[in-house]
Structure formats: C-alpha cells, structure tokens
C-alpha cells in the first residue's frame, strides 16, 4: 500500500484555482522531490499533507488525501494528531527563541511528557539522527538562535524527528543555506530515508537529482509528470518536463 495518496485534488484560493486535479502516490520510505517553477503550486500541494493550508481563510480543497489509507481531511481526524505523524521542515530555519534542549523536546512537551529521563534520551537520539549532537552536546542550554543557519536547520529537523513521525515534509529545506550546510542537509535526507517517507520541495534541480527516488514535475498547478528521478532527468515523457529540466524555462 502507498504511504501517501492524493486523488483528484483541486485547491482554490478564493476564485483562483492553484492545484488542478492532481493525483499522486508516494511509497513508504522513499524520497519524492517536487520540482517546478515558482508559483506552480508545489509548496501549496506539499502543505496539504499536514493541513497547513487550513489557516488560510480563502483556502478551499476538493478531492481526497490519504495517509496509510485513511482520509486526512475527514472530520474525525484531529489535526494535532496528524501532525505528530507528518512532520514538516520549513524553508527558512525557524527554531523557537528558546534553548536547544527546549527546541528538541517541544513536541513532547506539548504532549504532556515530563519524565526527564525520556526527554534527555530523545534529545540525544534526535540530535544524533540530525547529525548535530557532536556540535551542540555541551551547549544544550544555550539559545538556539546562537547557532548558525545550517545548524538551526538541522535542529529543526531534530525537533521534527523527536516526535517520531513516519512522514517528513520539507519545503526547500536547503535553499536558505550555504553550500556546505546544504550538502549536510542533503546527506541527512539520504540517511533518513531508511526510516521515514520524505517529500521535498526544491528549486535546485541537482539537489532533486541527488537525493530523490522519484520526482514530480508541477507546472501551473498541474502535475505534469511523476516518475523515477532517473527517468525524469534522462528520459522525460513530457515535453514541458524536458524543457524545464534542461533549463529552457523556469
């Protein structure tokens, strides 16, 4: 069974249709890259999976989105529970203005977990998973805002991992970082693949090529083509995909 499944999804912002009849299946423990020119709807589409568009007043959706076969827009679904399962990493690193330690345990804290031993364990495990432990283990009580941009982004990843999600959504996670930090985040994505299903929006074609198993090309709110990354980059079926990845527009 597919981990994530979107069926005939339409999204409207007021009178504007920004997603047009998109259906896509995403397999468990794979990395899927969403590519496409700015304004093509790929970020909007990504944010459907953890219902972050719900906060936009003029947002309206049709169609069905499933995780493990159950409809996430069902009225019975508690959106807070859903987001523990589907974590998200944003474009700009957005750590809370608190200590590194508090940042990592935020998800547990809001679930009411207070046991210091559990919290300590989770902090160490999550920071190690995010390849940040060695750099910050002696300053867990320092403000997260004192970290560099790349470290902040890995902290945001650690914070997401701490609540043990099964899916991680990443909205251009490396676009605000320098090349070295960006490479570290890519490496991390590659390692996390074995345990998590990852969907990543990226502007960077090379990045999509390096980290993803499958690639979906969006254009003007439509899903033009979704195939294995290798196919998309070497032998795309659609002419628009071909034009985009060869840099003829976008």
């Amino acid at each position: 069974m597919n981990k994530l499944e979107a069926r005939n999804v339409n999204v409207f912002y007021g009178p504007n249709q920004v997603i047009k009849d998109v259906s896509i299946s995403i397999k468990k423990n794979t990395v899927t890259a969403f590519i496409g020119p700015s304004g093509c709807g790929k970020s909007t589409f990504l944010r459907l999976f953890n219902r972050m568009n719900d906060y936009i007043d003029i947002f309206k959706m049709e169609g069905r989105i499933e995780i493990d076969g159950s409809d996430i827009y069902d009225k019975q679904i508690r959106v807070e529970e859903l987001r523990k399962q589907i974590g998200m990493v944003f474009q700009k690193p957005n750590p809370f203005p608190k200590t590194i330690y508090e940042n990592v345990i935020y998800g547990l804290r809001i679930q009411g977990i207070k046991d210091k031993k559990i919290l300590d364990e989770v902090v160490e495990k999550s920071l190690k998973q995010a390849a940040l432990w060695e750099e910050v283990k002696d300053k867990l009580k320092n403000s997260a805002l004192a970290l560099s941009g790349g470290q902040q982004q890995r902290l945001c990843i650690a914070r997401t991992l701490a609540v043990a999600p099964t899916v991680i959504l990443m909205d251009e996670p490396a676009s605000a970082l320098d090349p070295i930090s960006s490479a570290k985040v890519e490496e991390l994505i590659y390692e996390l693949k074995s345990q998590y299903t990852i969907v990543i929006v990226t502007h960077n074609m090379q990045q999509a090529g390096r980290v993803s198993d499958t690639t979906a090309f969006f254009y003007m709110g439509e899903l033009v083509e979704h195939d294995s990354t290798k196919m998309i980059f070497t032998n795309p079926k659609n002419e628009r995909t071909q034009n985009y990845i060869t840099g003829r527009f976008g």
């Binding site: 953890n50 972050m52 906060y55 807070e80 529970e81 859903l82 987001r83 523990k84 974590g87 998200m88 944003f90 957005n94 750590p95 809370f96 935020y106 998800g107 809001i110 679930q111 945001c156 914070r159 997401t160 609540v163």
Partner: peptide
Amino acid sequence: EASFAMGAS
C-alpha cells in the same frame, strides 16, 4: 507555523 507543524494546538 513551526509550533502548529509540531502538532501544537
């Protein structure tokens, strides 16, 4: 957004 995405009410 970060807080909501972490599952906070």
